[in-house]
Amino acid sequence: MSTMTPATMLKRPERNKGGAKRQLSPAAKRRSLTGWAFLIPAAVLIGVMMFWPMFQALILSFQTGRGTNLDWADPLLFNYDRMLDDDVFRLTMTNTLLYLVIQVPIMLISALVLANILNNPRLRWKSFWRTAIFVPAAISLVSYSLVFRTIFATDGLVNDFLLWVGFIDLPINWLGETGTARLVIILGLLWRWTGFNVIFYLAALQNIDPTTLEAAKMDGAGPIRTFFSVTIPQMKPMILLTVIMSTNGTIQMFDESYNLTRGGPANTTMTMSHYLYEVSFQNNPNFGYGAALSYVILIIVAVLAAIQMKVGDKRD
């Protein structure tokens, strides 16, 4: 079993343990250098394209000024202090966290259920179901945002359908009201990403030891019990990975907010990344403040990931 997760990453298989501790022979030394050569391009790219800009952003976040006239902030933490009074940022943070706590659990549970159904060897028309469930994952974020924007318009498909069924008497202004606009974003995220996670879970299900399932059956456990006490624990590393990926993706979400709702009404669907974009490029540009905002996003992501890994790493 070799499911890749940050958790299993730590635990190197036994077979390699001995070698590293011995005195290196010339051949081994050469090999070690070859190994470094293999790593360097990837490591340098990550260093230059991610760590260096992150460090630069930290410096930038201590500076203030409009446009190109940047100076050291006085006090140095001015931008961070200023953030405390920023109601719009607080609102976008609330929006983003709301998407996170509502959408991610629903999505991952649905994906688990669907993956489990699709994994049943006796399921008929399996490739059709798979195709149908996977296909949204192949659609670009901008594309689906615009499609959703169109079908949730006041005179769009959804209202026409609901009126036709008689479910509603008047068209609902989906994107014009805070509650429904947030709902549309969440529905969009569920539509686009559930199938994507099903793929990961299907992969994890292939790795489940069939004998453990047989054993559970022999012990008289029903399918639901088996699912919770045998299947889920074995999928834990993969679940952890999808939780971290989804959290990361939601916290950084930009495309849907920008294209589907334009952040409205009254900024109540705007995400943090969208606000960052507005502050940095659309309004009177304030890059120093934008950098400070980005550090707060970074800290949120890091804290959430740390919590998730801590929880996920606990073995039962």
């Binding site: 190109t68 974009y277 940095s280 490029f281 659309q282 540009p285 890059f287």
Partner: peptide, 10 residues
């Protein structure tokens, strides 16, 4: 256009 001008100026 506005973000483009901003990025270029920046």
């Amino acid at each position: 256009l506005q973000p483009r001008l901003t990025t270029l100026a920046q």
